[in-house]
Amino acid sequence: MGKREQTIDTILQTTMKLLASEGLGKLSMRRVANESSVSLSNLQYYFKDIEALLIAVVANYFEWCAQEVQDNISNSQDARFETFLRNILTDHLVVGGKTDRCIMFREIWALSSRSTAIDTAVNQYYNAYCKQVVSTLANYSAQPAVVAALLLPYVEGYSIMGNSLTLDKKQVMDSLIAVIVGLG
Rank of each mutant, 00 (worst) to 15 (best):
L85C: 14
S112G: 14
S115P: 04
R106D: 08
F105A: 13
R101K: 15
Q70G: 07
Q70I: 01
A79C: 07
E63M: 01
D100Q: 14
Q77F: 10
G97D: 08
Y61T: 00
E107I: 05
A56G: 09
D71F: 07
W109I: 13
S74P: 01
D49Q: 01
E107L: 10
G96A: 07
N72G: 15
A117E: 09
A66D: 04
D71A: 08
D78M: 02
D71L: 10
C65D: 02
W64E: 06
D100T: 08
A56E: 07
L93M: 03
N72P: 03
I73C: 08
A79V: 02
F81T: 15
A52R: 01
V58H: 03
D71K: 12
R106F: 03
A117I: 08
L111D: 12
I103F: 04
D100P: 11
D78Y: 02
I103D: 06
N72W: 01
G96V: 09
E68A: 10
S115G: 03
R80Y: 13
I108H: 04
I55D: 01
F81N: 14
R101I: 09
L111V: 08
R86A: 14
V95E: 13
A79M: 02
S115I: 06
D100Y: 11
D91E: 05
L111T: 12
E68T: 06
I50L: 03
D71N: 13
L93R: 04
Q77M: 11
R86H: 14
I88T: 14
E68K: 15
S76D: 04
K98Y: 04
A66N: 05
F84M: 15
E63I: 00
Y61V: 00
E68R: 12
T90Y: 11
D49S: 06
R114E: 13
N87I: 09
R86E: 10
R86W: 06
E68C: 04
D100F: 02
M104S: 01
K98N: 03
K98S: 07
V95P: 08
E51M: 04
H92L: 11
W109M: 13
R106S: 12
A59S: 09
D78K: 02
L54R: 00
S113C: 11
V58R: 03
A79I: 05
L85K: 12
R106H: 06
L93T: 07
E51P: 07
Q67T: 07
I103H: 04
I88F: 11
E51H: 12
W109S: 08
L89A: 11
A117F: 05
N72K: 13
I88Y: 05
N60E: 05
Q77I: 08
D49E: 03
F62W: 03
C102R: 06
I50V: 01
I50Q: 04
D91T: 08
V95C: 11
V94L: 11
L111Q: 10
S76V: 00
E82P: 08
A110N: 15
